[in-house]
Design a protein around this nucleic acid. Structure first.
Lengths: 149, 149
DNA sequence: CCTTGACCTAAAGTTAGGTTTAGAAATTAC
DNA sequence: GTAATTTCTAAACCTAACTTTAGGTCAAGG
């Protein structure tokens, strides 16, 4: 398994903890671009380890695969990304994470004000205000009170 | 539409902002238990407004419907829940929310330490430690580095 | 050489949380 | 009393993010 020939999908799976099927799925979604060896098997660059790590971490942060792909697409195309390239992306994540924390904290403080007040069914309750509404996609209730179209 | 006869599903939908189909779905999941009028249509208690509000808020907090049902099942069965009943449940949520905030904050602080260090691909990186792993269910990667079965 | 394990593709299945559709019956509005 | 809404059920469909299955092919060890 010469490094110069790239990593097999199994090696990548072992090192990242991802399932082989998940890695294939990520390729289908455009998150990684392996090449093929003469036999048609996928071969991955070592930098794909970092790419997949980034994917896993970003998922913990609550980002969708298309959102993650958008970030990864900002990495340089022709060369292996440098530390500086990764740092640039991490800073954007830091900001998004700050947002999430602030939203949750605001929600918690509102809940504090509501404990025992029994107002849960009143439209005037602070908790009815939409939270992170823009992030809602796909299935699910489209709006909360005070957020009608 | 006499109040004593309960609310129709449409009325409940209008007041909560939920889709009629979502309310039927919640009934199927055991989150609410309407009765039927002579014509076979659902009739809801006024306290179901609060129940559904609770469901919507808990979802914002990231709880699954089964988890929410578990909380709601702690409400008294025979009578309309009092403010004290709701307050008891809200306090549990406050704790769960504190947990979520702390997890995200820890994640953010780790990210701070990693920005620019280029360690994203190393198993020793703090970000590889599992976060909220117990909350992962259904589809998705089962573990991160350092969290193998 | 031959066997075993890793890989391949395409398609179907899974879970959560709903929505949509179709056809029929109950209510409400005029 | 009739027309227009609502509501009913059951079943199919939807998205995201994968996994599983089926039926082969490739690669590495002995």
């Amino acid at each position: 398994m010469k490094v110069s020939e790239g990593l097999s999908i199994g090696a990548l799976a072992a090192r990242t903890g991802l399932a082989v099927s998940a890695i294939r799925y990520y390729e289908a979604q455009g998150l990684i671009r392996p090449w093929r060896n003469p036999g048609g098997q996928r071969r991955f660059a070592r930098s794909d380890l970092r790419r997949l790590s980034f994917v896993m971490i970003a998922q913990q942060f609550g980002f969708s695969l298309p959102q993650i792909k958008a970030e990864l697409d900002r990495l340089p195309g022709g060369r292996t990304p440098t530390k500086a390239d990764w740092a640039k992306i991490s800073i954007g994540f830091r900001a998004a994470l700050d947002d999430k924390i602030e939203t949750l904290t605001r929600l918690r403080d509102n809940l504090d004000g509501c404990i025992g007040c029994g107002c849960l069914s009143l439209p005037s309750c602070a908790l009815y205000n939409p939270v992170d509404t823009a992030a809602r996609k796909g299935a699910g209730p489209r709006y909360l009170m005070g957020d009608r179209p």
